[in-house]
């Protein structure tokens, strides 16, 4: 965990986001520290994806401040208040932020390697040969070293998402944001993506993961943040959060999740799960 004098990679202060009259985020304050793996959980519509998109400024936040490594993201302070920054400055502030999307968002007209190297070549202006080396390394790290020449359509969903991860990785980001990276995958393919992410976590890459995979959060996260209705309701180490939820809302959320999982388990496992819940509530 962070000590007091480390600069957070991402510093979020009192951030709100409104879509017309709907308030998606109402005053979020959160720090993401170097090498930390933070999982954000919560029901649909709780604002977790919106928060993640604000961290990359794919979504403009309405008020508050987000800083990336000490630099204000998306706005500049003037005498007249906060003004939207130029695209060039926004790109510069977030150049060390990588993002992995729910629907992969690969470019279908390019090979896997070209997908991974496009940003290196065009944005970082790294010569082609060097970019290809970096790209191949990144693909190897996600276990797709032999797939450089394939097109996205020739890959399974899990492989596509790993290319998405390699694409973020290749840019050498200081933090990677994962927006429900396994939600679009069928259950058989979820594992390979989670395993890849685990490896990155072990390697010390700072990660923020919006996810419904409680197992992953419990195993890999340094900190779990529970959001509901645009607020951070509770946060803490997964061991504490999952076993001793403080708020009624989180208890309810975890109960629902356990019940749903029980539907697919054997009698014995169901008993264990019920026991688990009892200890939780005790």
């Amino acid at each position: 965990m962070a000590t007091e004098n480390t600069t957070p990679v991402i510093k979020i202060r009192n951030v709100t986001k409104e879509f017309g009259s709907f308030t998606a985020l109402s005053g979020i304050t959160l720090d993401i520290n170097p090498s930390e793996v933070v999982c954000i959980i919560g029901p649909s519509g709780s604002g977790k994806s919106t928060l993640l998109r604000c961290m990359s400024f794919l979504e403009e936040y309405t008020s508050g401040e987000i800083e990336i490594e000490g630099r204000l993201l998306g706005y500049k302070k003037t005498a007249a208040g906060m003004v939207r920054d130029s695209e060039r400055n926004i790109d510069d502030v977030r150049r060390n932020v990588g993002m992995v999307f729910q629907h992969f968002n690969l470019w279908p007209h390019m090979t896997t390697l070209d997908n991974v190297t496009l940003g290196l070549r065009l944005s970082k202006r790294i010569p082609d040969a060097k970019a290809r080396d970096i790209g191949r390394d990144a693909l190897a790290r996600v276990g797709l070293g032999d797939f450089a020449g394939r097109y996205p359509a020739q890959l399974s969903g899990g492989q596509q998402q790993r290319v998405g991860i390699a694409r973020a990785l290749a840019m050498g980001p200081h933090v990677i944001l994962f927006d429900e990276p396994t939600s679009a995958l069928d259950p058989q393919l979820v594992g390979e993506v989670l395993d890849t992410m685990k490896k990155l976590a072990v390697a010390g890459i700072t990660m923020v993961v919006v996810t419904h995979e409680m197992g992953f959060a419990a195993q890999v996260a340094d900190r779990v943040v529970f959001m509901d209705r645009g607020r951070v309701v509770e946060q803490g180490k997964p061991s504490a959060l999952f076993t001793e939820p403080q708020s009624a809302r989180l208890r309810e959320f975890l109960d629902t999740w356990r019940q749903r999982n029980n539907l697919f388990q054997t009698d014995q496992a169901r008993l264990a799960a019920v026991g688990d819940r009892r200890t939780t509530e005790a």
Binding site: S56, L58, E87, R88, D91, R94, R95, V97, G98, M99, F101, H103, N105, L106, W107, L118, G119, L122, S123, K124, G164, R167, A168, M171
Partner: peptide, 16 residues
């Protein structure tokens, strides 16, 4: 739209 967002995150300019 997602492809455009991915390109933004890769640091590409509007023209690129």
């Amino acid at each position: 739209k997602g492809q455009i967002e991915a390109a933004r995150m890769a640091g590409l300019s509007g023209l690129q």
